[in-house]
Design a protein around this nucleic acid. Structure first.
Lengths: 170, 170
DNA sequence: GTAGTTGCAAAAAGTTTGCACGACG
DNA sequence: CGTCGTGCAAACTTTTTGCAACTAC
């Protein structure tokens, strides 16, 4: 995954933006980390290597990278989180998202190919995500554990990701 | 739509919860209002009939009704918004959402009928929403207007809804 | 009457902004 | 060396919490 980070660094440079140590570390963090990171998590991960780092620098750079299309921002029940973009150099796809470990599995299936819309509605965008439990978490669960806690009535919210850091998409 | 509000009031009562004037007005507001309302919007709508109303009462009741499954909470770019639940007494469906006027059009199509998932992944929930511009907004747009402003690079965020209040779903 | 609810105030959490210093190119 | 980025502080917004007074049942 290191080359992903390097490429993004070059993207920054090509846009005339300064490549500071903070930005380099930030990009590397997202290039190497699976799933989602909140601004707070990002801050605590960076502050260890950058004593004196401030929250506003984190926020500014997260926003910058989001505007650049490098990062994607999502809202979860426990706040805003970022993750490296999937649009970079892959074709359009969607995700299976594990509610237990936050692992993300890409699926090529796109519902828009099957959808007939009322003619007067002009489609601009769509969101499709599938939530559930991945094989690994299910087998762990078999050895006695919680099952669907962390899921509220609407199923919209997600349980906090555990510490696992395995990248399965992008 | 008045009977929807009355039914929800009875739901409150049946759960042993007090039916206060604030709650009655709040439920009626959501029963009669289309699209989404932020806590702030809810507050300003209620404070006119309830002078002295406080924000925390709004927040507490929004959360209460969400926990009861009456309201659904969504995160948009400009913050959290609520809307009356669609699960009440309708079959499963999805939505076309107008990026201009926030109008919501139900569609019966569900992508899950067409999706083959990896066997080890246990599906619990899914989200599917289509964003675009409804026929009414498109025809207004024809008479010279903005087109896709309010949409960011990822298309995830939505433009602020205009003042229109026409309920097309639930 | 009693328990649930409200309003008030304050605190907490999350995010943004202005400004002077510092560092990248 | 000029410009952009950072750190600091403060402001701002959103949301939560403790508590006394109130009110629906």
């Amino acid at each position: 995954m290191a080359q992903v980070g390097e490429r993004l660094i070059r993207t920054l440079s090509a846009k005339g933006l300064r490549v500071t140590e903070q930005r380099r570390t930030l990009v590397r963090l997202f290039a190497e980390t699976s799933s989602y990171l909140s601004p707070k998590e990002v801050y605590f991960r960076l502050v260890s290597t950058h004593p004196g780092l401030s929250y506003d620098t984190v926020y500014r750079n997260l926003r910058l990278l989001q505007d650049l299309g490098v990062l994607e921002r999502y809202h979860f029940d426990d706040g805003v989180k970022f993750r490296i973009g999937c649009f970079e150099d892959r074709h359009h796809h969607h995700h299976l998202i594990c509610l237990s470990c936050s692992r993300i599995v890409p699926i090529d299936f796109c519902p828009m190919k099957h959808l007939n819309v009322p003619g007067e509605f002009q489609i601009v965008d769509h969101h499709f995500d599938v939530y559930g439990y991945c094989g690994q978490c299910r087998s762990q669960e078999d050895r006695g554990a919680e099952s669907m806690e962390g899921l509220n009535h609407s199923g919209f919210e997600r349980k906090k990701p555990s510490g696992k850091e395995e990248r399965l998409c992008c």
